[in-house]
Amino acid sequence: MSRPRSIDKIQNSELVTISELVQLSGMRYSTLKYYTEEGLIPFEQVDNRLVRRYPRIDSLKRLDEINKLKISGLTIEEIKKILLKN
């Protein structure tokens, strides 16, 4: 297993792991995993190790959008319809 990257490296990386996205967003791992499974957060699957890498900037923007929509009272299903219509 590799050493965890420093927060400085994470903040400057194009792609991050879900654990690093947890650090950056302050959200729970289980929440991010659920959003990923629902197709709300974009990711890339790198090589055969099945490690998902999330585009840092796009993922954080998407999480911000989801939070704003949740605060406005929408359900995850309603959020999916809005965000995935494009």
Rank of each mutant, 00 (worst) to 15 (best):
R28K: 10
N12L: 13
M27S: 03
N86L: 12
T75I: 10
P55A: 04
S6T: 11
I18T: 10
I76H: 05
I76S: 04
V46S: 13
I7R: 13
R56F: 12
R52H: 04
R5C: 00
L32M: 09
R28A: 08
N12D: 14
I41F: 00
L60S: 06
R3S: 13
G73A: 03
S6Y: 02
T31C: 05
K9A: 15
I76R: 01
Y34V: 03
S19F: 11
T17C: 00
K70P: 06
R5Y: 02
E65F: 02
D8H: 10
M1F: 13
V16C: 06
Q23S: 13
S30R: 11
Q45K: 14
N67M: 15
I82W: 02
T36D: 11
I76N: 03
V16P: 00
I66T: 01
M1A: 13
K85I: 15
L32A: 06
R49K: 12
V46I: 15
I66Q: 01
T75H: 09
K33Q: 09
N86R: 14
T17I: 01
L32Q: 01
I82D: 03
V22N: 06
R49F: 10
K33A: 05
E38Y: 02
K70E: 11
S59L: 01
G39A: 06
Y34D: 07
S25W: 04
I10R: 04
V46N: 15
L63F: 05
L40M: 12
Q23R: 12
G39K: 07
R52K: 11
L83D: 01
K68Q: 13
L15T: 07
E77H: 12
M27V: 00
S13H: 14
R3G: 12
T75A: 10
I82L: 09
V46W: 14
Q11C: 13
L15M: 14
E77P: 07
I76Y: 02
S2Q: 15
Y35R: 07
M27A: 03
S6P: 00
R53C: 08
Q23G: 02
P4L: 12
E37S: 04
I41D: 00
N12H: 15
R49Y: 08
